Amino acid sequence: MQSWQHFARIQAINSSQVGISWFGNNNYLPGLGDAKATTEVTLRLNLPPDLSSSPVLLTNLTDPALRVDVWSQGSFLHLPNGNMFMGYGSEPIMMEYGPLERNKTVSKARWSATFDYSDLISSYRTYKQEWDATPETHPDLVVLKADANEQLHCAGNSIYRGYVSWNGATDVTAWLVYTGAKNTSLTAIGRAVKSGFETEFSIPNDVAFVQVGAIENSSTSVGK
């Protein structure tokens, strides 16, 4: 028996049948001794509605090895690759289930993830999708003297290091580095391939100004 449904959605419809899915919290209050495993349910119903015809259970997603009991919120999505994705509302947990095998209504989770400590954060809905972003802010650049024992590949006799990052930028592949004696006459001296969140590169000892430009998909973008 299902209760406290959330995020009900029509999945498919034609002149004779309709599919409907929902996230079944199944628990009214946290800490219940008889808490039920949270599931996603998809039913197929005949049209027009007929009390003599029972709904057909298409999916009932839960993984006994990764059981989660939640009491509020939550969401469910069909993904383009045939998998199914659940966000567990009052618990900061997400799971992706594989496509159903023939004549099966349950599926094992392909992966799961948490995004905070339990009971400190919740999600009304979660999504999995391709995401690209170019922030309105400029990149952050810091220049420091190298530590005495620091070893940067190809640094030569340079004692200065540049550190550049751009929080939120998803498509940066490299940084174009400009240097010069004046900020009005900078020259490109090379590229630093993006490495993790913060990219480190060497700077010639005799320059007074440094600027970087983000290279996104082979085109130069915002600089600093």
Rank of each mutant, 00 (worst) to 15 (best):
P48N: 06
D50Q: 13
L51K: 11
S54I: 12
L58W: 07
L61K: 10
P64F: 13
R67V: 14
R67C: 06
V68R: 14
V68A: 05
W71K: 05
S72P: 00
Q73R: 14
Q73C: 03
F76N: 11
F76D: 01
H78D: 14
P80V: 15
M86I: 11
Y88G: 01
Y88N: 02
I93C: 00
G98K: 07
P99I: 01
E101G: 11
E101T: 02
V106F: 02
K108N: 09
A109Q: 04
W111V: 05
W111A: 03
A113M: 11
A113N: 08
F115T: 03
I121C: 04
Q129N: 07
D132E: 15
T134L: 11
P135V: 15
E136L: 13
T137D: 04
T137H: 12
D140E: 15
L141I: 05
K145W: 07
Q151L: 13
Q151N: 14
C154P: 00
C154E: 08
A155L: 11
N157G: 09
Y160L: 11
R161H: 12
Y163R: 04
S165M: 08
T170M: 09
V172K: 04
A174K: 14
L176S: 10
V177S: 01
T179W: 08
T179F: 10
G180L: 12
N183S: 13
T184R: 10
T184Y: 10
L186H: 04
A188F: 06
R191L: 06
V193T: 14
